[in-house]
Nucleic acid binder design. Structure first.
Lengths: 289, 289
DNA sequence: AGAGCCGCTGAATCCTTTT
DNA sequence: CAAAAGGATTCAGCGGCTC
């Protein structure tokens, strides 16, 4: 079990528009970590690249909430922005990132790999992979010109570009036995995970009527982001778009105070019910001292 | 062994600047596939390239060779552009891609994963991973603020954005046991690989008079790009920056005519020596009929 | 009784046709 | 010719059944 930060962290879930409510509830530079996955679609069809007005509206709206996050974030805080992609618009995530680059420094780009094929013959001398295998959930796409998308971005933005991270908090074990002894003293037998994170997509299969939100990220994703920034450095975490509450659950599991917003009361109710459930075991797979 | 295209494909390796030589050697729209890894302008110690152009000069130079590739490429051709990242400028690859978006349509973005950690507990019900394992070579980076980089981009550009691909040519086996036999007939027992490709980093150690080539990609990378586009549709492939000749080797192994350029004769000589070696077995791991 | 076979369902989807 | 709607498609997951 990972060490948690506080015994009984606070969790405020506020019903309303982040752009309206955040200025009322969040003091300047009072949040140490933001992790979120913004809505792709605001009810306007911004996906059509010829619909300049709608697309511009989306970019403008992105710019405004980016500015509000900047106001709320501490000078040494971190923003982890999860953005997925549609095969038919592979650059959309980077268009969003471009807006944030006007407010923040892009310090790291992490690649969330939801599914990948590992050939046994490619593994080399390390045992552990015994046959060709696809790890993770594969979601087919009907297209002759697009390959399937099994990837999402996690952009790590900071104000200075120089925020120190706790890389070993989500470290992975050394592979080579000789390195384990040589370097074990330094970091507890683990080294930096790198920027490709294999996190299986949750395979929970709701029936359509039970699924209040089309997509969310697994709890482990915000958990890993928080630990990478450094749990003990986070007095309060924030998510402007709570959705089903994965980021709130992550904060709860790590003992971090949390404030979140969502415009949809149904989502918030669902998030509250998840928070009230018995705490799940920490599934983070990093080796720990 | 994969089927090859032609028995004895031609291979022209031309010593000189692509921007100067290509107009002399390559007719308009006469190349069906381009795969290359341009100098990154990262301050890497290449032999002859001035690899420390100013940012504006680098963008301008990129724009010019992008235009020349556009001239050479067939209307239904594919350009696969491999670009890595430097930790201190995580968006550099996309800045290069932005230049190409002014000439081409970005049809797919493929993520070349050089190393990734797979936890046994994350694999689910499919056997094949028996313990926590890092697949691929881990290259440490000494930094407090940057996680280490185990990823490179492969941008797939086309003129129309509607080039049909041969997704199953680099397909991977079905995962679910109950589905393997059921749908095996449709595509030879494989489905689309998706956009995250695990290819271990090559262990080439090239030294020539203390002037090593700092970067190359494994032969399998251009091989997979060529097969994804469709080997039988490629009359001639091209690489503006041959370097150590991996793309030429890929073309040779698949029986595809090839033309390549490099400003450095030492690199070309090394590429020629690799081409003259006994042909290596095809390491592509796709299942085949 | 566990492995194998089969039907059914769904997906921040894509494609084609119709206004 | 841009936008909307219905059709097509693929493969993992699950449950029920057989042998």
């Amino acid at each position: 079990m990972a060490r948690t930060h506080k015994a009984d962290p606070a969790c405020d879930l506020i019903h309303g528009d982040f752009l309206v409510e955040s200025p009322l509830h969040v003091a300047e530079a009072s949040v140490d970590l933001v992790v979120t996955s913004p809505p792709y679609n605001l009810g306007v069809d911004y996906n059509s690249y010829r619909d300049r007005l709608s697309r511009d509206d989306y970019i403008d709206w992105t710019d405004r909430w980016a500015a509000e996050v900047h106001r709320a974030l501490a000078d040494d805080g971190s923003l982890f922005l999860n953005v997925g992609t549609r095969p038919s618009d592979p650059a959309a995530a980077w268009d969003v990132a471009s807006v944030f680059r006007q407010h923040f420094r892009l310090q790291n780009v992490i690649h969330w790999v939801k599914s990948i094929f590992i050939a046994k013959g490619d593994v080399g001398k390390y045992p552990g992979v015994t046959r060709d295998v696809t790890v993770g959930h594969y979601k087919p796409v009907n297209s002759r010109r697009f390959v399937n998308d099994t990837h999402e971005y996690i952009f790590h933005f900071t104000k200075t570009g120089e925020v120190e991270l706790d890389r070993l908090a989500i470290g992975v074990p050394y592979q080579d036995a000789s390195n384990i002894e040589r370097w074990a003293g330094a970091g507890g037998g683990v080294h930096c995970r790198g920027n490709t994170w294999f996190i299986p997509y949750p395979t929970i299969k709701f029936r359509a009527k039970d699924r209040p939100h089309p997509a969310t990220f697994p709890v482990r994703l915000p958990e890993m982001c928080m630990r990478l920034h450094g749990v003990e450095k986070i007095s309060r975490a924030m998510d402007p778009f709570v959705g089903l509450g994965s980021s709130a659950l992550a904060a709860q599991s790590l003992g971090i105070d949390f404030i979140g917003f969502d415009i949809d009361e149904v989502y918030l109710e669902y998030a509250r019910s998840r928070l009230a459930e018995p705490r799940q075991p920490d599934l983070i797979d990093a080796a720990r001292p």
